[in-house]
Simulated assay, not measured.
Amino acid sequence: MEDVDELCAIFDENFGVRFYGHYSLSFDGRTLLRIPHVKMLHLNSLTQAHNTEALAKLEHLHSLHLGIYELENSDILGIETLRSLRELTIISDKKILNLQHFKAYSHLEHLHVGGKVKNLDAIGDLQDLNYLALHSISKLPLHFINRLKKLKHLRILLGGREHIQEIEENEIDHLEICRVRGFHDLTNITSFRALTSLVIEDQIQLNEIRFDREMKALEELSISNCKGLTGLTGMKQLSSMRKLRIFKTAIDFDCFIHQNLPSSLSIVEFATAKSKVDQEIQNSLLKLGFQKWSSSF
């Protein structure tokens, strides 16, 4: 461990240390006292951990990723040395995590938070936040996002909510909504006027996506496994659209492809998971001059 700590002292915050997979034993936080110079720390896939107050001794932390299933301390964010973090991932499945402490996290830029939480609106005080992922957080209102003026990347993963209507016009660049139970309303999508990338996955109750106002910045759109989705309209409003992926939806290909599509669109994938049908669709797309979708997106 002393050798690891020496490397932590030499290298910057891109050099990380990870402890994971302690399924039958509780991880002893005092182990961290042997790497006081660590800057990026991952404690994840842990069932239990004790002596987590040892985090207070890590004065060089830049990035912290906590995934402890039975988190013992619901006020772990109150540890003073964590206030200088720029990147934080924390998910609590058992204890109700108190987010009120975020009011003192003035340097935080990247946050992935999930599980059982209270005082979610305290995230709105993170004025430098540019990345936010909300993981398995159900129904709590999202008005606080309107206070995050530097937010560029928003991901809403799992949990349950019907819509995101609370989010007003913003400068968010990337939006992802994945496997959110009960989600069926995306009528305010044009409030995301600066959006360049939109990803929608596993939303079986979403029936329509309609762009009823111009979205000049949107370049990439990926929709997958939204089996109830029958309508994707207003594509002509997306004057910068380059890449489009539609996979396992109820959208009729012939109706869709004959609507007024943006002239900038050059890469299209449309698939149903039925091999014969998909081959015919692919041939049609190639004849229309569209390129194949790259898996790098």
Score class of each variant (00 low, 15 high):
L46I: 03
C8Y: 03
R30F: 04
D185L: 00
R83L: 04
T272E: 02
L151S: 00
D121V: 12
Q48K: 13
H101C: 02
L97M: 04
K248G: 00
H50F: 15
D75Q: 14
I167C: 04
M40F: 12
L221Q: 02
F183L: 03
D202L: 08
L140E: 15
P141A: 12
S275Q: 14
R245N: 05
G289Q: 03
C178N: 14
L134M: 12
C255R: 15
S26G: 14
P36R: 04
F19A: 10
S138I: 05
L41P: 06
E166N: 10
L157C: 06
R210I: 14
E171K: 09
D212N: 15
L61A: 02
V17D: 10
P36C: 06
I79C: 07
I90K: 05
Q259E: 14
R213M: 07
E162Y: 11
A271Y: 06
G231W: 03
N73L: 03
H107F: 06
L285F: 04
G124E: 05
S138C: 14
A49T: 03
G234A: 02
H65L: 07
I200T: 05
K292T: 12
L288E: 02
D75L: 14
T81H: 06
L108C: 10
H65Q: 08
N73S: 12
S266N: 13
L25K: 15
D212E: 10
N188H: 14
E70R: 15
G160S: 14
G114Q: 11
L285D: 01
F102C: 02
I167F: 06
K139L: 08
S92L: 10
V199F: 13
E162H: 13
G182C: 06
I68W: 03
Q279K: 13
N119I: 08
F102N: 00
T230K: 12
N44L: 08
L88A: 03
R155P: 07
F19K: 07
Q203H: 09
D93A: 10
F247L: 15
H163I: 09
E166I: 05
Q237F: 06
F102P: 01
D278F: 10
H62M: 03
E109M: 01
C255Q: 14
S24N: 13
L41N: 10
I10A: 06
D252H: 10
C8D: 05
L148D: 00
N51A: 11
I96E: 15
R245Y: 09
S296M: 09
S84I: 02
E280K: 14
E53W: 07
H184D: 07
D278L: 12
F290R: 04
S45V: 11
E2D: 13
T31V: 09
L99K: 05
E72K: 13
L7H: 02
S295Q: 05
K150A: 02
I257S: 01
L61Q: 07
H107N: 11
P141R: 09
A122C: 05
A194K: 07
D75G: 13
A133W: 01
L25P: 06
G231K: 12
V4E: 10
I257E: 03
L61W: 01
L154D: 00
E162A: 15
W293M: 03
I172M: 04
F247E: 15
S266D: 14
L140V: 11
T230F: 10
A133K: 13
Q127L: 09
